[in-house]
Computed example of a mutant assay.
Amino acid sequence: MFPTVFSRSSLRFPRYNYALQLRRAFATPAEPQDLRDESMDKKPRKYTTPLRRSASASLPIRANPTPTRSSIQTVFTLATAERYLLSRMRGFPVLPSHSQKFHESWWIPRWGKHGKEGEVFVFANGSFVCWGLEEDEAHRFAVEVIGRIPGIEVSPLKASPGNRGIRIRGGSHRVALTTRLQGDLIILGKNPPLNELTPPAKLPAMIFPEETLFARYAFSQALSRSTALSALEVALEEYLSSMALLPHSLAKTGKPGMGRTALVKKLGELMKFRQGLNLNRENFSDVPDFYWTEPELEKYFNSVSDALDVKVRTDSVNDKITYAAEAQSVLRQLLTETSTHSMELVIIALIAVEVVIALIRDGPELWEIFTGQDHKRPDPSHAEKV
């Protein structure tokens, strides 16, 4: 039995394309042509840049293949929605009978065509991780499984997928490889004993070794979190693009070019971004409770999260949201001032109308008071008596 090694790479940077690749994909809305900044076409977006850690750390393994190491295989992650309702997957006929809930994921030990089977972890954050499946098979899983389960996707993402990746590789137990992240390789090998966690009583036949099941889960959860964050980054970039013309409108016309209702809707979208980033149960800042009693698994989770810059990217998204919130605060103040000015003009106009009406109604009396002349008509009965 061979443990497995995974290497990470980016599709936009072919020099990182090594043997076993884990790829992350997420659905992205098309960018409006009229709002596109030319400089953005020349410089890759933040979420498409290569991972920080150099690939040189994994060169000794990739450059020296041995018969005791298994071939490199693919790990691919895909996000299709903002959230999955995992309870909808229970008992659905499109899934293999051996699929089951595994902690905070839905675990499918074997899926795919005969001879090309792999393992899939589906997470509630709207993404799933495929081990040993190629990119086309991962997309087929999204269509044939996720797409056929009614109500599983909450707020599906728009089409036009983007991706970037990581790969896997393995070696024999005689080499005593330990499970770890090395450079751009995720190595699945020998695991230290766990403190409290035990595998399910009845495990189905799996593609990968049973002893690395919890390690694969930890790596998968970190990868799925990074993929969900990438989808959020894309949505936020789209949102910021939709607001990019407001400063130009203010500079040109002195008006924000957006009504109060539209601005309130945009503010709601911004609050939704911040809630999804920081307040949901599956957020991007906290280490899941699952790892509190298992430091080794937490080390696996943190190693991938650090390599994929999850914390740095989360802070960057928060900074962008803060900037957008400040810009919207300025716009709200401008709209409030404009509304206040309009109300002042209306009040002045009403006062003027009231003055005119008072002059028409009480003008003779006022004239008498100021001039002392009596403009009353003589009483006819008094005239006849005289």
Score class of each variant (00 low, 15 high):
5 V>I: 00
12 R>F: 02
16 Y>G: 00
23 R>A: 07
26 F>N: 00
31 E>A: 00
34 D>P: 01
37 D>N: 13
55 A>V: 02
65 P>N: 11
69 R>Q: 15
73 Q>F: 13
77 T>H: 06
79 A>P: 06
84 Y>N: 15
97 S>E: 15
101 K>V: 09
103 H>P: 01
107 W>R: 07
108 I>E: 07
112 G>Y: 01
119 E>G: 03
123 F>Q: 10
130 C>F: 05
136 D>Y: 01
142 A>P: 14
147 G>N: 10
153 E>I: 02
164 R>A: 00
169 R>A: 14
170 G>H: 12
174 R>I: 07
192 P>N: 09
200 P>H: 06
209 P>G: 02
215 A>Q: 07
216 R>S: 05
220 S>K: 08
241 S>G: 04
241 S>W: 05
249 S>R: 13
255 K>E: 12
264 V>E: 02
267 L>S: 03
268 G>Q: 11
270 L>G: 05
270 L>C: 12
271 M>K: 13
275 Q>A: 02
295 P>E: 14
296 E>Q: 11
302 N>K: 15
305 S>C: 12
311 K>R: 13
326 E>V: 06
329 S>M: 03
333 Q>K: 13
341 H>I: 03
351 I>K: 15
351 I>V: 15
356 V>R: 05
364 P>S: 13
366 L>W: 13
369 I>N: 12
369 I>F: 09
370 F>Y: 09
381 S>Y: 05
381 S>W: 01
384 E>C: 02
386 V>I: 05
